[in-house]
Write a protein that binds this DNA or RNA. Sequence first.
DNA 1: GCCGTTTTCGGCCCGACTGTTTTCAGTCG
Length: 597
Amino acid sequence: MAHHFSNQEVAGKLREVAAAMEVRGDDGFRIRAYENAAVAVDNLSSEAFDLWEAKKLDEIPGVGANLAQHLDDLFRTGSVKHFTKVKKPLPAGMFALLDISGVGPKIAYTLSKQFGLTKSETAAVKLKKALESGKVADLEGFGEQSQERLLTAVTGFLKKKGPERLLLPVAEKVAEGILSYLSSCPEVIKASALGSLRRRVPTVGDVDIGVATNQAGAVVDFMKQYPAANRLVAAGEGLVRLELTNKLTVDVKLVNPTEWGSLLQHFTGSKNHNIVLRELALKQGKSLSEHGIKHEARSTKQEVRKYDNEEDFYKALGLTWIPPEMRENAGEIEVSEQRKLPQLVELKDIKGDLHTHTDYYWISSHDAGTDDISTLLETAKKLGYDYLALGDHNPSISSYNENKIISLIKERKEYIDKIISTRENKVKYSSIKVLNSLEVDIRPDGTLAIPEEALKYLDFAVVSIHSSFAMKKEEQTKRVLKSLFYAKVKILGHPTGRLINQREELDIDFNAVMAECLKRNIALEINAIPQRLDLPETLVRQAVKLGVKLAINTDAHSADQLEQMRYGVDVARRGWAKKQDIVNAWPWEEFQHWLTG
DNA sequence: GCCGTTTTCGGCCCGACTGTTTTCAGTCG
Ligand SMILES: Nc1nc2c(ncn2[C@H]2C[C@H](O)[C@@H](COP(=O)(O)OP(=O)(O)OP(=O)(O)O)O2)c(=O)[nH]1
Ligand SMILES: [Mg+2]
Ligand SMILES: [Mg+2]
Ligand SMILES: [Zn+2]
């Protein structure tokens, strides 16, 4: 009988063993191997359990024969003898303390042992009591200050709900506030948002800001006065770390302008990109840091050569500059070395939006848009688009019968034709081709929520799932495949159905779906709504590899939301998509050929 | 423990800050 564990549970177990090994004083590299494996399992795009069933555990980078064997024990029997043995001598409560900031294995162990924290459920609360009683300050290696610091950290930990990461646009707003504040500091020469923000990761854990200055001390003092700061976490000559009133952490790293290039590289990350880059440098006899490159890392001469721009920094390693969105240690260093970096799609390549909602007046199956056709066209024109598809939700099938739906869709076509052919609009929007589309629900049985007869009134259809999210993989996959069979279907909308921080992805076999898309010349949508960003980047990457086409759409429910295209392009770039992979980056003629072909 | 354009041994990123401690360990990014 197999025992199921989620990726997060498996990663948690690996981290606990790593922490236990740290306390035991085991080899640091072996510990790192456990931590690496934990991160790898955490970030897996499929379930480790499924990989185990398919006997493919050791295909996870960072999981080798040994760990695969341990995880095999875990999934078969529900526990791992070796893990249990390593953790047994240690107080069980210590593992519950590891997520408290500033508490690592050593401190967790010392305090758990000292105060008898044997249960994970009560460990943090008991520790707080001990800290409040003042007993911690008397322990060897601790003092009044560390006691105070720990109390703040434990209190924050106990208040915290979950490890929520911010959506990219929310973090962008925070960063803009800080950058605007920094721009009024005369000693700041350059300032940029780096870290996950610059890599355009869909969710952001903290806000990282790089600063170039010749007077770091003055900038540090200036940052300490930031109005939205709640607490100063750390400060030195190269760093200020603040906790904001909304509990978000801000890291500001400072270097001289001569070191700007190396800071950009380092502080953009990702961590794994940095580590692999540094390992590559070591093989070349160089050593990298945010301050520059030691070109003779092994000699006694330790001169650090400085780089004021990133291009030169990468060039010094024999690489061409790598777009931040690609810096995830997913093969980008190799392709840069081989001069085979893809020319990633850019926002300015986008020539139209293929999924937008208007305020059209029927009772629709889901939320309608709030702006009319002309308002959308106005914005589309401002964005320089060559084409725009109006894709309202289908009429509600519980409100209308089939014949009524057919006549409604016919009526809508006539209405759109009329609007765009008025003399005024013909002149105003002459540069934009308007497409008559619908976002049609895929019903649980895979049929469409409009009669087939109505499809002839559309230029094309986007089909999407908006119900029955919990179906089993086989059934859900069949459902999607069936929907792709209908005439006029050209785009599968928000294919995984995920809502970041809220709803998991649908259980779908995307190998099968992509094969079908390829066969039928159907595009997968990259929905640009920041909470969706769906397709997720790993599936984008897979689609690009297979040659499956993609459409980046805003799914705008108001004219201003047409401007969220950027977030979809970010995902496309993180999935290594080129202009040729994105149907709405094609000129009208080419796009139209695809649409009707 | 993992891993392989100097493959199955011998490497494994590098620095900032804190706090308690006379020279550094622990934690974090
Ligand atoms: N070389 C190296 N660089 C690191 C390490 N940890 C972090 N960095 C660099 C790369 C990161 O992108 C950058 C900022 O660190 P963060 O912890 O804020 O990570 P990041 O912003 O990538 O993700 P986040 O959304 O904050 O979780 O600092 C490390 O262990 N080694
Ligand atoms: Mg960050
Ligand atoms: Mg950070
Ligand atoms: Zn939808």
